[in-house]
Structure formats: structure tokens, C-alpha cells
Simulated scan of single mutants.
Amino acid sequence: MLKVGDLMHTQADIPAVVESAPLSEALLEMSAKKLGMTAVVDGENRISGIFTDGDLRRLLTKTHDLRTTPIADVMTRRCTTATPDMLAAEALAVMERKKINGLLVADEQGRLVGALNMHDLLRSGIV
């Protein structure tokens, strides 16, 4: 049985910015890593939130300066996460139930260790 840890993006492939980063930096990170999201982390790499393509679309209906707005002001704070030992099928069920396309992966202390999106599950044959 496949686990999230077998499929997730790790280390330099994880899209992530610090809480103080401007929105523009988050958008560049999302574009570079191509997962449709970026994690927002604190100084100890604990997940503070997430910013997704959907968040960006909703944000475009409001007035924000992309260069100066801190990502912490526009991120989703209480994001759903997975653990590396979670079954991939469980992660899929969570994504379907929450109607989301990606999950950040956290260790027991809430530190960012990976990222997973629906395309990873499709490539694995889970979907």
C-alpha cells in the first residue's frame, strides 16, 4: 500500500515561503515549484498556513499590492495536512471530502516535510 511519504515532494521541491514574505514571493515560489500552492512556514519550519491557486483567484477580486502585501495577511491559516505515514488512499479521500487539490505534509511537531497534489496521486495509479 502506497503512503503519502512515497509520493510527496520533499526538500527543495516543496513550495514554501516564510510568513513575512510578500505575496509576490509566494507567487514566484508557486510558479517555480508547479504544485498550485505554497506552504507558509514560521522560523522553525512549522506550517502556519497555505496559499493556493484558488486563494489567488479569490484575492484578485480585491485590491492588494502584490509586492508589499505579506503572505500572512492572505493565506489560509487552518489548512488540512497529511502525515508521511498516511495511506495515499486516505489522502485522496481527504482531498475529495474537502474539495482540495493538494496537501501539505507535516511531521508530529507540525513541521513541513512534504507536499502532495492530485497529480501525484494520478501518476501513482491511486486515482
Rank of each mutant, 00 (worst) to 15 (best):
E90N: 10
R111P: 04
N117G: 06
G36H: 01
A88G: 11
L59F: 05
E108R: 12
H9Q: 12
I50E: 04
H64E: 10
I100N: 02
A26K: 02
P70A: 08
A12K: 11
G125M: 00
I71Y: 11
M8A: 02
A72K: 13
L112H: 03
G125E: 01
T83H: 15
M118P: 05
I71H: 10
G114E: 02
S24A: 15
V113K: 00
K62Y: 09
A12Q: 14
M8V: 07
A88L: 07
T52L: 06
R46H: 14
H9Y: 09
L66R: 09
A88I: 10
T63V: 13
R46A: 12
R77Q: 15
L66S: 06
T52Y: 11
R57C: 12
Q109G: 07
T38V: 06
N101P: 04
Q109V: 07
T81Y: 12
T68Y: 04
S124H: 10
L59A: 13
L7W: 03
M118Y: 09
S24E: 14
S24R: 13
G125V: 07
L116A: 07
G102K: 11
V127P: 06
M37C: 13
P22F: 06
S31E: 08
I50Y: 02
M86E: 14
A26D: 04
K98H: 07
V74K: 01
L121F: 03
M30G: 09
I71K: 02
Q11M: 08
M1K: 07
D85L: 11
A26I: 01
M30H: 04
G110T: 10
A12T: 12
T63W: 04
G5C: 08
R97Y: 09
M37Q: 14
G49Q: 05
D53C: 05
L66N: 02
H9N: 09
N45R: 15
P22L: 01
P84N: 14
D13P: 00
G36S: 05
A106G: 06
A12W: 05
R77F: 03
D120A: 00
D107F: 01
I71C: 05
T76A: 08
D55N: 08
A72I: 00
V41H: 00
L87A: 13
K62S: 15
K34V: 08
R111L: 04
L35A: 05
D55T: 10
S31T: 12
R78N: 15
N45C: 11
H64T: 11
P15V: 12
L56Q: 03
N45K: 14
G5T: 09
K62A: 12
N117E: 07
V113Q: 06
R46G: 11
E90R: 13
G36W: 00
G54Q: 08
M86V: 04
M1Q: 09
A82P: 08
V40R: 03
T81G: 02
V74F: 01
A93D: 12
R123F: 13
D42N: 14
G102W: 01
M1H: 11
E25L: 11
R57K: 12
H64D: 09
P84D: 05
A32E: 15
D6A: 08
A115G: 04
V18D: 11
N117K: 03
A89E: 15
V127W: 08
L112P: 06
V41F: 02
L112S: 03
G54H: 00
L23P: 04
R77N: 11
A39L: 00
R97I: 02
R111C: 07
T83N: 12
R123D: 13
A115V: 10
T69V: 10
D53T: 14
T81Q: 07
E96C: 13
T68P: 03
